[in-house]
């Protein structure tokens, strides 16, 4: 991080780390989270979710500061952040964490769509 003036207590400040979790099939691809993430952690993916939208993906996995701005802005309750576990062995495991299955109802919704 660049500062225009070095904070006096910089050495004491602990920058939090977060895991961002995307419930990808709930996303409607509005892009709010990608646009306003202060750390540029997210990007819209090329992939389509079950509703046919492009959900966000994590592109800078170690950089999330758990500010939950993405979570607050998301109108779909499709993304949130949690504090990263202290355990540094996490690395590379984000993927298994970063997308969560949609609820049963959402899958049913999908089925209804197909049926109609």
């Amino acid at each position: 991080m660049k500062f225009w003036r070095k904070p006096l207590d910089l050495d004491q400040v602990v920058i939090p780390h977060g895991d961002v979790i995307i419930i990808k099939d709930r996303c409607k691809g509005c892009g709010f989270c990608v646009e306003y993430c202060p750390k540029g952690v997210l990007q819209m993916s090329e992939e389509f979710n079950i509703k046919g939208y492009h959900p966000p993906i994590v592109v800078k996995s170690g950089e999330c500061v758990n500010c939950n701005l993405c979570e607050m802005l998301c109108p779909e309750f499709a993304i949130y952040s949690v504090p990263a576990p202290e355990d540094e062995t996490l690395g590379g495991a984000e993927e298994s964490l970063s997308t969560v299955e949609a609820t049963k109802e959402e899958k049913t919704w999908r089925r209804t769509l197909r049926a109609s």
Binding site: K28, C30, F32, E71, M72, C74, P75, F77
Partner: peptide, 11 residues
């Protein structure tokens, strides 16, 4: 709709 802000207010 996608891009609607009402969900954000609910959140």
């Amino acid at each position: 709709c996608p891009g609607c802000g009402i969900g954000t207010v609910v959140k």
